[in-house]
Amino acid sequence: MTNKKNSISKIEKGQSSDSLLFGRIGLAIILIVPYIVLNTITDGKILTVNNLSSVFTSSVTSMFMSWCFCFLFTTGITDLSVGAILILAGNVGGVFAVNLNLGTFGLLLGSILVSVLLLLLNTVVRSFTKIPSWIFGLGAAMVYEAIGMYYGSYMISRGRQVVSLGNVARQIGRTPWNLLIVLLGFIAAYLLFNKTSVGYNIRALGSNRRVAEMMGVDVQKTMTYSAILGGIFLGVAAAVNESYSSRVMPTTGLTSVALIFTALAGFLLASSLGKYINLTLAIIIGIFVITSLFNVLTILGVPSGTWQQTVMGLAVVLSGIASQRKYKGVVK
């Protein structure tokens, strides 16, 4: 009897609530201690309300982009055109807000509309052509960057610049409205990713497409939903970015790809934290940590060019390494 119990208890084994709790406490220490140390090194410049508020404000766009990755990249799609879409969607949102006099509503509507449509277009073309997503993403990024540049050139030819929000629709990029937006974004991402059939199907596709298909997951439908949901979060990211910056200049030469790196590093870091906390919440922490890193570097006087780029590259690689430690533990 004892042996049977022994054997079954081994079959039952999983991550105990104790180890989960210890893991979370350990994680909190690992995250908090560097802030305290760096705060001491910088004579208390890190842990001030103003500085933390500034870090948070700079993080919001990347948080929404990272939630977009939750739905898009989790299905196994690596779409590198999201940076170019972010710029284009922000500009269209700006036109809706300023030129159509629709204000914040127009900014959000235009940005979301463009993001959803372009991500859907990417999904359709990829599924027809069967091109690897990262190759298609690079091509699409060049096209979307070019469209932005056509718009920019057209405006310059008329003696004007790309749309600037001025004083219109600037609240969502600033505190305290951005706090509310992040809270709403988190609730939506958490529920959609963890508590809906679509969320389960998206995660299933990313984990094992063939098995998911065999278990009744409709692949095309799920990919479409992932583009729509990812597009909505990317649209909000574009609107917040436009609202925060007032004007976003179109770029060329694939420089838009670099725009996704903070979000990507945060997403990968969040994936590694996923053992202890839910991915959608871990994204907030991951992005905040990565943004803090640059904040600290700036405060320490590290040049914003080469050195900060080096740190960003390292952050992506290290977060990627950490995110490989998956499939252990329980579902939060």
Binding site: K195, S197, Y200, A204, S207, V211, A212, G216, V331
Partner: peptide, 24 residues
């Protein structure tokens, strides 16, 4: 599906029965 819980694997593709206001 390695990335989903044991329970989700058992009911994957048939999760609708656990929906309350569209939330699982």
């Amino acid at each position: 599906v390695d990335g989903l819980s044991v329970a989700a694997n058992i009911f994957l593709g048939r999760m609708d029965r656990f929906k309350k206001l569209n939330i699982i």
